[in-house]
Design a protein around this nucleic acid. Structure first.
Lengths: 144, 144
DNA sequence: GACTTATTTATAATAATTCTAAATTTGGAA
DNA sequence: TTCCAAATTTAGAATTATTATAAATAAGTC
């Protein structure tokens, strides 16, 4: 199932209405791999509606986060929260020089959930695994 | 070497002056396992100084984070950043209901560095592994 | 089509963090 | 020690992401 359908069906299954604004937020999230902020989503989508409000963006994002379909990534360098529609276990890897964030799959991260649940009894709702470093390109640049 | 000395020596090694305010922030961080916020540190330490400013707390914390001696944990449920003086590989586990954060050691997290370096060629400089969910106590409360 | 309720909108309110400029303190040099 | 330049602290103002509010609008149901 496409990521877009997962998001919209998640909202519907929770008894929420599928308004044009909400489906637009879901589509934008699903089609982006840029980990957008609420403001980035708003700036883009307001062009598509006669009127459109940041509050609607937050409303939709909060619902998706609470439903576990989207991860909120806070404290990533700038001071706003980035959203990631990929909730499969993976590592976010940020380059401190060029500020790109890439997703990478990880053998060990896929096992973390089970390990943590077994060790603590917490009910896990989400995770953020964020590494910082210098990407290969920027390592080169800094050597020149 | 004690955690307190690591923090103060890190500041000194970076050419920063060891003022009484800064050493107090370092001591508080080193002796706390509560992952305090800037406001929590300020509220406690202002009792020890005739005058004391939140800006000084932020100044010191920002320096320690940039130097890699402290991790900043944002987006944890309340809307302020928590600080963790333990930079050894471990999992931070936050409860979204009571906002407590606990540290837990993890077999898998200790191997993540090697795995990521091998897979990507990045030069890793730091990491934050944050899980969030409901602690056993809060799961009970929400069932009542 | 009318009704009930959820949702959207625009704006105001809140609160964490950053900025600013003046006053103070620091560590080094004479 | 005393002086000096530079770093630091302070208090408060400014900024800004997010949340709350209340009136207007749209959805889904009968």
């Amino acid at each position: 199932m496409s990521n877009y359908l997962i998001l919209t069906q998640t909202l519907k299954a929770a008894g929420m209405r599928l308004t044009p604004q909400r489906t637009a937020v879901c589509r934008f999230l699903a089609e982006s791999d840029e980990h957008p902020t609420a403001a980035m989503i708003y700036d883009e989508l307001k062009l598509q509606f006669d009127s459109f409000s940041l509050a609607t963006v937050y409303n939709t994002l909060d619902a998706l986060v609470k439903l576990g379909a989207v991860n909120a990534l806070g404290g990533v360098g700038d001071d706003s929260v980035h959203y990631d529609a990929d909730t499969e276990p993976h590592v976010n890897l940020a380059c401190l020089s060029c500020n790109k964030i890439v997703d990478i799959p990880s053998e060990h991260v896929t096992h973390l959930d089970d390990e943590i649940t077994a060790a603590t009894g917490y009910k896990l709702l989400g995770a953020r695994v964020l590494y910082y470093g210098l990407c290969p390109d920027c390592q080169e640049s800094s050597n020149r």
